[in-house]
Computed example of a mutant assay.
Amino acid sequence: MAKRCSTRAVIQIFLTGMCLATAITSFTFAFVFEQFMDQLTENYRGELRSENLPCLRSTLDDCDNAREDRCWDSCCPPGYFCSRNPIVGLYCQDGLTTCGEFNWCRDFADISRTCSTPVCKTNQMVTRVTAWSYILAAIGIFLDLVDIITIFTLPDAVVFKAGTNVFSSLVKWLAFGLVVGAGTQGFMSELEQGRCFNSVGMQLVADAGGLFISYAIVQVVSATLSLVLAPFSAYFGGKLQGGEVPYVK
């Protein structure tokens, strides 16, 4: 019996540690993914701030296409030339990079700043949902830390500990469901197929897509581990020594 209890304790400690480790990892992936998505759009407005250049973008503020209908040399940052489109008016075209799918890239850039196209609306939804997702991932980390603290402070609190594991699993599943339900995977595929950036930007797109897949996998693993840990908590609580089941009133 002592040997079985020792094996059970090792398994329970391993599951608890893996729950926390995967929760932290998924939070990190979600946070970095959100940062990458912000970097993809940072050069669509104003002066250039990085090397991930879009194939087309809005004109500079001094040449707002809501007021101007004629191209000037000062309308675009270095490396871009001013052009006109019957739908969005003036815009800046990169002289070295050609858009793979012009219309998709135009809608993604939201040159008119009205976000009236499905592509722009999906991008906004993915961005908002990603922010909520890593907030929920952070809550999952907090619940896993509560579970670990319970082992040392309330080892006989089987209901509380098991409830914490189940709630943690539900929060993680919700975080996963939000990004999947928002169509993030399909949107990232379309973004890669659209080829709206130079080589540096397309590498960023590929990295962001890989991060999303990694986040989804790790979040599912973390949610599953929390759910698997719940029966151990319900039966043994936080007791790592002794084989008897805690008395529950």
Rank of each mutant, 00 (worst) to 15 (best):
R57M: 11
D156F: 01
L154C: 10
K121G: 01
S58L: 01
E190D: 14
K121I: 14
N43C: 07
N198Y: 02
L48P: 02
S169F: 05
S189N: 13
Y247L: 05
F160G: 06
Q39P: 00
G209S: 14
G17A: 11
K3D: 11
I151V: 15
G46I: 06
Q203W: 01
T117A: 14
T150C: 13
V200Q: 09
C63W: 10
E244W: 00
Q241D: 04
G89L: 05
P155E: 06
S222L: 02
L170M: 13
I141Y: 06
S83M: 04
P231E: 06
S226I: 00
Y215T: 12
D38R: 14
G163A: 02
S50F: 05
E42A: 12
V171R: 03
F167G: 10
T28M: 13
N103R: 12
S58R: 12
C99N: 08
V88P: 05
V221T: 05
L211K: 08
S133M: 10
D64A: 13
V10Y: 01
S222A: 15
A21F: 09
T153A: 10
F187T: 04
C115H: 06
T25H: 00
N85S: 13
M125F: 09
T16D: 04
D110C: 07
T184R: 02
D62E: 13
Y235N: 01
Y247W: 09
T153F: 11
F152R: 13
S214C: 09
L60K: 12
G181V: 07
F212S: 04
Q35W: 05
C63E: 08
Q219A: 14
P77T: 09
T164S: 12
V220E: 03
V119R: 03
A206V: 11
C63N: 09
S50E: 00
V179D: 02
Q124H: 05
D38P: 00
C105R: 10
F236Y: 13
A182M: 08
E42T: 15
T22G: 03
E192K: 14
S74Q: 03
L225D: 11
A230F: 10
F197C: 10
G183H: 06
V205W: 06
T164E: 03
S6K: 04
N103E: 12
D144G: 10
T25N: 01
D207M: 06
C75K: 07
Y215N: 11
F27D: 00
E51C: 00
Q241S: 13
T224M: 01
E68H: 14
I11E: 02
F29N: 05
Q35S: 12
Q185G: 14
S222N: 03
D69S: 08
P155F: 05
P77L: 03
L191G: 12
C92H: 01
D144P: 04
N165D: 15
S169N: 08
L170Q: 03
A175Q: 07
L143V: 14
A157W: 08
T130C: 10
G210E: 07
F212K: 04
A9T: 10
V245R: 14
R113F: 09
V248I: 04
V129K: 01
S6M: 02
G238F: 01
N43S: 08
L174Q: 06
R57E: 00
P155A: 02
D110F: 00
L227D: 07
V146M: 08
Q203I: 00
R128G: 11
T97L: 02
F29V: 06
S74R: 12
T22H: 02
Q185R: 10
C82S: 13
T22R: 03
G237R: 05
G243N: 07
I217E: 04
E190G: 07
C5W: 02
W72R: 15
